[in-house]
Nucleic acid binder design. Sequence first.
DNA 1: TTACATGCAAAGCATTTGCAGATAA
DNA 2: TTATCTGCAAATGCTTTGCATGTAA
Lengths: 159, 159
Amino acid sequence: MNPPFNGSNLKNEAYIEVINKRPFTQVIELLQSAGLRPTRQRMALARILFNEGNRHVAAEDLHRDAKKANIRVSLATVYNTLHQFASAGLLREMVVEPGRAYFDTNLSSHHFFFEDTGNIEDIPDNLISISHLPKIPKGTALNRVDVVLRLRTSEQVKI
Amino acid sequence: MNPPFNGSNLKNEAYIEVINKRPFTQVIELLQSAGLRPTRQRMALARILFNEGNRHVAAEDLHRDAKKANIRVSLATVYNTLHQFASAGLLREMVVEPGRAYFDTNLSSHHFFFEDTGNIEDIPDNLISISHLPKIPKGTALNRVDVVLRLRTSEQVKI
DNA sequence: TTACATGCAAAGCATTTGCAGATAA
DNA sequence: TTATCTGCAAATGCTTTGCATGTAA
């Protein structure tokens, strides 16, 4: 199966360059199985997101990375794509700072948050365990548990 | 000790009305012990915040409540005040939704978040316990642990 | 061909800032 | 009196929207 874009179109050179790196069939399958049309932009963004380990990106970051890779996408499309990926379950939206949304390629929901730098780091699920949970209010179901360990550069040692 | 404002000033009627309800000396002491000058606006906002159990407010909410109580404060001052209270340790800033900051009068850091309504509810510290924590990265200290239990109206029962 | 995706610029919010005037100590 | 606080409006920064154009199926 060939990548579904017009390979002879000059405007597509950047996409060719990106998409010709393997694995690209996986990306197409990933999008298709999520019910998303594998457009050039989505494929390119998916490759940036999923091809090198876990990432935590704000829309701005991904947009910058795309530019760096010579991929022309508008910021609005990056936002749309991130939300589409998130509702398809490919990404998890996370909230650690007011005024900025991050998306995590790792679906685990536990994180270090470095307050000084704004950096985020995953905590593998097996490294954290909650032994007691409160009763879940009637009429609701637990969707997920987010744990954020907020860190400061040490000196002031607080609990 | 008298409330430190000009009681004969007509503009201050609303403040008088608010502040004359007890306890106001506590509010003054609270602010002073936090190193904050007990100005009329801060006293009025502190009373709204701390005089009736635990609250989770966005700046907009507090501003609205102040208006309802006939207190004239600008939204900018509400924002400033909330942040001042938070860095003084009187409030805790919390982030559950992108694009909006909440402040919690309860310093406990665990919450239910009702995804459908946006409501927030405290979880008493003793109802949740974390039995394993990962190693804290070198050069940093754990500032706090935030746990958010995200709830949906039940039907789709997920873990 | 047709429904869906994209790009751009404009609009929308929450939040912050700058500065002149007010106020607590 | 002086350092600090407040109010207003403008500025900022992130995110969403509307709509014409482009593209996948």
